[in-house]
Amino acid sequence: MKKIFAVGGLLAVTVLAATQVNAQSRLRPQTNKPDTTKPAGTAPATNTPNNNGRGLVPNPAVTPTTTQNPNASGAATIRYDTSSNNGFGGKPEVSLRNNYAIDRSQVRDRKPLEYDNMRDDDVVWSEFIWREIDAREKANQSFLYAGKDDNGDLRFFSVLLNAIKNDSVTAFSAENDRFTTPLSMEKIMNQSEGVVDTVTVVDPISGTEEKVITKRPKFSPDSVYTFRLKEQIMFDKESSRLVTRIIGIAPVAKQQIGNTGKTMSVLLFWLYYPDLRRTFAKTDVYNPKNFSSRMTWEELFESRFFTSYIIKSSANNPGDKYLNAMIKDPLFRLLEGENIKTRIFNYEQDLWQY
């Protein structure tokens, strides 16, 4: 029995000594070891309160190399502001804090809905229509809104330019509307104010050509307020409805004709509308009544929230001429465009019995 108590007492003393050693090691200060994972010369990241005391800002000694949108997910993107330098170049001022009282980070991730599949055999009637949108009209004032956000300038012409620069949308020559000749970005940006050029002017009545010395239009968002649409109207017998699909969009600029003081409309380039839908789905349209109910440009065009007038139709037009080549009076041209709208409306209504 004495041997058993002696062994038990020795074990108790050993356990007590080990506990004291561990306690002393926890109280002993730890030495700082150098971090070998950081490169030499890197300033330590310190968090200091900002001016308003509501957040933390990084160490000013560390200079970022790219501009990151805090509301966007993924890699940093560089956006261009088309309101500076005659509408080209420059970078928008990206908000370093959330510019809204709510989280709108999901806006940059929006994608357009795919079109319904339409078979060629189901289209029993089709017609091509060319329209022009005049942004000076009251219903189209959102096309000239000069505000800015993280996407840059919100004027519609600037949205088109940003789609070419940042979203790899291809611009096509204005020689025809069938998207046959791609244009480089340098060729688009070379157009500026004060450059004298010689162009061929075709008389719409007689068809004669004349060389005229002109001045190229100022290529800025404020000088372009007219936009041409090419669209196809179809009746789908599978769904029994009239479908309108936009094919292309072209900005139209005013060009001076010599020293006469007169101007002529000049197409700058054509853009394929299905290529633009991804950009339009991420860009909001200005709403003067309610900021919370703003729609995107893609929703505006698909819902037809704009006013326009018809300048050409493929029906009863074997010469492929615009209305201004067949009708001289501008008032009668507008009336003829309304007659085309009425004819299409009556075609759809006559397909049904009531």
Rank of each mutant, 00 (worst) to 15 (best):
5 F>A: 11
6 A>C: 05
7 V>S: 14
18 A>G: 06
18 A>N: 00
26 R>G: 06
30 Q>A: 12
37 T>C: 01
46 T>L: 08
47 N>W: 14
53 G>L: 10
55 G>W: 07
56 L>P: 00
56 L>Q: 07
61 A>I: 05
61 A>S: 10
66 T>I: 13
66 T>D: 07
66 T>G: 05
70 P>H: 02
71 N>F: 11
77 T>I: 09
77 T>W: 01
78 I>L: 07
79 R>E: 10
84 S>K: 10
90 G>D: 08
94 V>T: 15
99 N>H: 12
99 N>E: 15
100 Y>D: 01
101 A>W: 10
103 D>F: 11
105 S>Q: 03
106 Q>H: 07
110 R>N: 08
112 P>W: 05
114 E>Y: 08
116 D>H: 02
116 D>Q: 09
121 D>V: 12
125 W>R: 15
125 W>K: 11
128 F>S: 06
132 E>A: 09
132 E>W: 07
141 Q>F: 09
144 L>C: 06
146 A>T: 08
148 K>Y: 09
150 D>T: 06
156 F>S: 09
161 L>D: 12
161 L>W: 14
161 L>M: 15
163 A>N: 06
164 I>L: 13
165 K>S: 10
165 K>L: 13
166 N>K: 07
167 D>W: 08
167 D>I: 03
168 S>F: 06
170 T>A: 07
172 F>K: 07
173 S>Y: 01
175 E>F: 02
183 L>R: 13
183 L>H: 04
184 S>L: 05
184 S>P: 00
184 S>R: 13
186 E>T: 15
187 K>H: 13
187 K>C: 09
192 S>N: 04
198 T>M: 05
199 V>E: 04
201 V>E: 02
203 D>M: 08
203 D>P: 00
203 D>L: 06
206 S>Y: 04
208 T>Y: 03
215 K>Q: 14
216 R>N: 15
217 P>R: 09
222 D>V: 07
226 T>Y: 13
229 L>E: 02
236 D>R: 04
239 S>H: 10
241 R>V: 05
246 I>Y: 01
248 G>L: 06
253 A>H: 02
260 T>E: 07
261 G>F: 02
268 L>Q: 12
268 L>K: 12
270 W>E: 15
270 W>F: 10
271 L>Q: 05
272 Y>R: 15
274 P>G: 02
277 R>M: 10
278 R>G: 00
279 T>G: 05
280 F>D: 04
281 A>Q: 03
282 K>T: 12
283 T>D: 08
290 N>R: 04
301 F>R: 12
305 F>E: 15
307 T>Q: 12
308 S>A: 04
310 I>W: 02
311 I>K: 14
311 I>F: 14
314 S>I: 09
314 S>H: 11
315 A>D: 13
316 N>D: 14
320 D>H: 10
321 K>T: 15
322 Y>F: 15
322 Y>T: 11
325 A>M: 03
326 M>L: 14
331 L>R: 11
331 L>F: 08
335 L>T: 12
337 G>I: 12
339 N>F: 08
339 N>L: 03
342 T>A: 15
343 R>F: 11
344 I>A: 05
344 I>H: 02
346 N>C: 06
349 Q>I: 10
351 L>W: 00
